[in-house]
């Protein structure tokens, strides 16, 4: 129990000191994770919607694959991204390994299936309700997808937040492709891993608490925005 008390102390001391390194790490964490989630939403939501709406051979298999990809261990994603971005890999010439861009790519691969799969489920339910009406109004496949994405926008914040949660919490992928380089690619989770390896358990746990607080703040902000938008008109 002593560790927890110490951790609270460490977290508080870090926050109170306004440690610039902590600010840097928190900033990079947010930048990497939010960018990855944004890309996942921009790509994964239309993809999930089309999977819910379109009828084509192999659609069931595609949905099953998406669900399976949701469970990919971050380390595997990190390793695959590493092999892609390594200087001796197919995309090595881009020189992205050990940069925030590499971390964004890995986390996008990690969160996109999750966002797409959750979107598919949400849109499939809406599609069952609105399909005939929309077709009667002359909506094509894309128009239907966009209409339902808009209609499911409040439910879809949950998909985006699930993606955020997965990305914010993972350490395996960003550790491998980012390298946990000080002042370059160190983020909250890799910093926690580092402090754990140094045996600085209270500090590691304190960083964990700060990460939890950031996640909670992002979730609360999203929920508040959603509630305000819902109240604003549409229900």
């Amino acid at each position: 129990m002593q560790e927890f008390t110490d951790a609270f102390g460490a977290a508080f001391a870090l926050l109170a000191s306004g440690d610039p390194e902590l600010a840097e790490i928190v900033g990079l964490s947010l930048r990497v994770t939010l960018t990855a989630v944004a890309i996942s939403c921009l790509v994964g939501m239309p993809l999930g919607a089309l999977l819910a709406i379109a009828r084509f051979p192999g659609r069931g298999a595609a949905a099953a694959l998406l669900n399976a990809l949701m469970g990919l261990p971050p380390v595997v994603v990190g390793l695959a991204t590493y092999l892609l971005l390594s200087r001796s890999g197919p995309l090595g010439a881009l020189g992205l390994l050990y940069t925030p861009a590499a971390m964004i790519i890995a986390q996008t691969i990690l969160t996109l299936p999750l966002v797409a799969a959750l979107t598919r489920q949400t849109i499939a339910d809406l599609h069952a309700e609105h399909d005939e009406t929309l077709r009667a109004l002359g909506a094509g496949r894309w128009a239907t997808a966009l209409t339902l994405l808009h209609d499911g926008r409040f439910a879809l914040t949950t998909a985006a937040l699930a993606g955020f949660g997965r990305a914010a919490a993972e350490v395996g992928a960003v550790m491998i492709v980012g390298g946990n380089i000080a002042h370059a690619t160190r983020v909250m989770t890799t910093a926690i891993a580092l402090e754990t390896a140094r045996g600085e358990l209270a500090l590691a746990l304190g960083l964990g608490m700060i990460l939890l607080g950031i996640s909670a703040a992002v979730n609360l902000a999203a929920m508040a925005l959603r509630a305000r938008a819902e109240r604003a008109a549409h229900v």
Partner: peptide, 23 residues
């Protein structure tokens, strides 16, 4: 077509009609 269940979108009353026009 009008169905038994109106299947309205999560928009304003006006928005449901303007969106139908847009579609």
């Amino acid at each position: 077509v009008v169905f038994q269940r109106p299947a309205l979108l999560r928009r304003s009353t006006l928005g449901n009609v303007t969106h139908a026009l847009a579609l």
